[in-house]
Amino acid sequence: MVQYNFKKITVVPPGKDFIDIILSRTQRQTPTVVHKGYAINRIRQFYMRKVRYTQQNFYEKLSTIIDEFPRLDDIHPFYGDLLHVLYNKDHYKLALGQINTARNIIVCNKTDLQPLDGLSEDDMKLVMEMKSEAMKTIPQGGDPSEEGVLLTMSALTDEGVMAVKNAACERLLEQRVEIKMKSKKINDCLNRFHVAMPKPRDNRDRPTCIPQAVLEAQAIAAAKEKKKLERDLENENGGAGVYSASLKKHYLLADDEWKEDILPEILDGHNVADFLDPDILERCEELEREEGLRLE
Rank of each mutant, 00 (worst) to 15 (best):
V127L: 14
I105E: 15
V107Y: 01
D117K: 09
D122K: 08
G142L: 02
G141N: 01
S132T: 14
D143P: 05
E129I: 04
N109S: 11
I106K: 12
D123M: 06
L116Y: 15
I105K: 12
I105T: 14
Q140H: 10
D143N: 14
K110Y: 07
E121V: 10
K125F: 10
R103L: 09
A102P: 06
L126A: 09
L116V: 15
S145M: 01
K131G: 03
T137Q: 15
D122L: 06
E133S: 13
A134V: 02
P144L: 03
L116A: 14
N104L: 11
G142C: 03
V107D: 02
D112W: 06
G141R: 01
V127T: 09
T137K: 12
K125A: 11
P115I: 03
I138H: 00
K110L: 09
A134Y: 04
R103V: 01
K131C: 13
P115H: 04
D123N: 13
K125R: 15
I138L: 14
P115A: 05
I105Q: 15
I105V: 14
D123G: 07
E129C: 03
I106S: 08
K125P: 00
M130Y: 11
I105H: 12
G141D: 02
S120Q: 10
S120P: 02
K125D: 10
I138W: 00
K131P: 00
K131L: 10
M135A: 12
A134T: 05
D122I: 07
S120I: 04
E129M: 08
I106N: 14
